[in-house]
Computed example of a mutant assay.
Amino acid sequence: MITVSTDGSCLRNPGGAIGWAWANHDGTHASGGVASGTNQIAELMAVLEAITAHPGDEPLRIEADSQYAIKCASEWVRGWKRKGWRTASGGPVQNLALVQAIDRAIAERPGPVTFSWVRGHQGDRFNERADELAGIAAREARDGRVGPANAVTEVIPVVAVAAPARVLAEDTLF
C-alpha cells in the first residue's frame, strides 16, 4: 500500500496565496501554489495532486488533517452526484471543479483510494512535512516565486509533476 500525507496552506483566508503538498511515506513529495485561493481549495488540490501522482493498481491511502477534503472526496461526493451536484439543501457544491476532478481521478485509478484523518500539528512527521511544504509553497506563490506545481523528488530518479520550480534533495525530507 502507498501511504501519502496531504496538506494545504492559505496565508489569508479567503483570497490569500495558497500552497498544497503531499508527502509519500517512502520519502517522495511534491508541492505547488497559486497567488489566491482558500484553505479548502488548497486542501482539495493536495488530495488531487496526490492521487494523480500515484497511478496504478497498488492501493493508495491518503492521510489528511482536513475532514472537509476527506469528506468531499469519499462521502459527500456520492450524494452530490445523485442530486445533480447540489448539496443536501439544494445549493451549489463549493469547489465543484476540484471535487469533480478528484472524483474522476479516483474512478480512473485502477487501484483503490482510501482516506484516513490525522490530527494536524500533533507530531505526525509526514503530516508535519506536508504542512511545511504547503506553507513554503504558499509563501513562494505570494512572492511570485512558484507556479502551480513544484517538482516531485523521488529516491531515484527525480520526476516532475509539471514544470519544475525547484527540486528538494532527499536529505531535506526529515
Rank of each mutant, 00 (worst) to 15 (best):
R125A: 01
R61Y: 05
G90V: 10
A105C: 03
D57S: 07
L133V: 13
F126H: 13
R129M: 02
T87Y: 08
K81M: 06
R142Y: 07
G90M: 07
I106W: 01
Q100G: 12
D124T: 14
N150T: 14
A73H: 07
E108G: 04
V93K: 03
I62E: 00
R61G: 02
Q122E: 09
V77T: 13
A163V: 14
V146M: 08
G147W: 14
P148C: 11
R104M: 04
I102H: 09
W85F: 12
V113H: 01
V118M: 04
W80N: 03
D143K: 14
P164N: 09
G120F: 13
W85M: 05
I70V: 09
P59Y: 03
Q67M: 11
I62W: 05
I70L: 08
I62N: 00
E75F: 13
R61H: 04
L60C: 12
A162T: 15
A141M: 01
V158C: 02
T87A: 01
R129Q: 03
D124C: 09
V77Y: 10
G79R: 05
I102R: 05
L60R: 15
H121T: 02
R86Y: 12
A101I: 13
P110W: 15
P148L: 13
A64M: 06
D103W: 08
Q100T: 15
G79T: 03
G111V: 04
V77Q: 06
P164G: 10
E108L: 10
Q122W: 09
